[in-house]
Design a protein around this nucleic acid. Structure first.
Lengths: 199, 199
DNA sequence: ACAAAAATATACCTATTGGTACAATATAGG
DNA sequence: CCTATATTGTACCAATAGGTATATTTTTGT
């Protein structure tokens, strides 16, 4: 065992609490008082464990992606589903998660990415946000470029546009979810969107 | 003439400058120092002219709607255009405006509406933001409900879903514009969207 | 039992936040 | 020209921001 007093809190529980604060308030709106209160610790504990606000944000952002976004991805590679069902179930799953809270919160990433232009966000926080944005776009692009059914239907010819359509609707749905629009209504938007792509 | 020293600045010019700061930074990220510096005045002048930060925000928000959003609306009621062209030209016009700056700023309203859930926005600011959200939704809804071509094609049967689809894509496109995606790519998304609705 | 190490609580730091008091400066009417 | 009125510049206010110094508590190895 390492020498010294034992940590009186679970690092992952605290990180999850911090993630929820950033999710609700964004980077700028989440003060250290808000964060540490939600995490159930005081500032020195936060600083010694996570570094500083931007380092906490970087960890909280990765934690969001791993705990709330990654699990939906396996739907996109389910071999038994048609391309339409892959995309539909993926989008429905993501949006259901974003409308879960009675006071919907939408998407952590969409919220915080919108703060980048303000020029008030530290560079490491900007980096991680931009990195996930690039990755998300790449996932849809490679799906339309490589999926056999996509190629068969000729959707790979306009893979870029179709990928951007999915991504745009997801971002829009995140805004709508944050504004309190219920999941059921957004499912109709998904249906329209997939029809427009040709699925 | 009224007695007393004359105002050394143009109220509308100052309001326009304030609008641009809120557009870039949102309500929380726009400090009084940022605002007054951009407006070219000092704090007492700002407070005596506009009241306080939230009153300035309410005026700046209305100014945004009138100077940047209202002008696109006439496209939706152009009698010579098909329903598809009305919606396409409207969306293209809005998105072209949002991608204008090399460092795109997206939509003022979408940005600030995303701050509401943070619970850090004064109530009068929340009210004006929610009011414009309701109005925007109503415009698309009444279009699909009442437009002759919409009725002829049976789109009025699902007017709610179609209206929400347009609005969701516009919000998503605003996020994309803010992230720097060029106008040309988003025009492809518009095309997909209108196809999905059945236009 | 005791020293070293780690985590905690409290109090503090400087900078900035939204907002004002007050004195100096213009302006118009009498 | 002088007074009333309105705007301006400067300096300030309390509260909070992100971050830290320090002393206290708790733990383990010797």
């Amino acid at each position: 065992m390492t020498v010294g007093r034992k940590r009186g809190f679970d690092e992952n529980v605290a990180l999850d609490a911090a993630m929820n604060v950033f999710w609700q308030k964004g980077y700028l709106g989440a003060s250290l008082s808000h964060l540490t209160a939600a995490m159930g610790i005081n500032k020195p504990s936060m600083y010694s464990t996570f570094g500083n606000k931007q380092a906490l944000f970087v960890k909280a952002t990765s934690h969001y992606v791993e705990s709330h976004m990654a699990k939906h991805l396996k739907i996109l590679s389910a071999p038994s589903l048609s391309l339409r069902d892959k995309l539909m179930q993926y989008m429905q799953s993501v949006i259901a998660m974003q409308t879960e809270q009675s006071q919907g919160r939408g998407c952590y990433l969409v919220l915080c990415q919108s703060e980048i232009v303000s020029d008030e966000i530290p560079s490491e926080a900007v980096s991680v946000l931009e990195q996930y944005d690039v990755e998300a776009k790449a996932i849809f692009l490679s799906l339309f470029e490589s999926d056999p059914e996509s190629i068969e239907k000729g959707l790979d010819k306009n893979a870029q546009i179709h990928a951007l359509t999915i991504y745009t609707v997801l971002k829009g749905a995140a805004s709508m979810a944050r504004a309190g629009v219920p999941c059921a209504q957004l499912n109709g938007v998904i249906d329209n969107t997939l029809t427009g792509i040709g699925l």
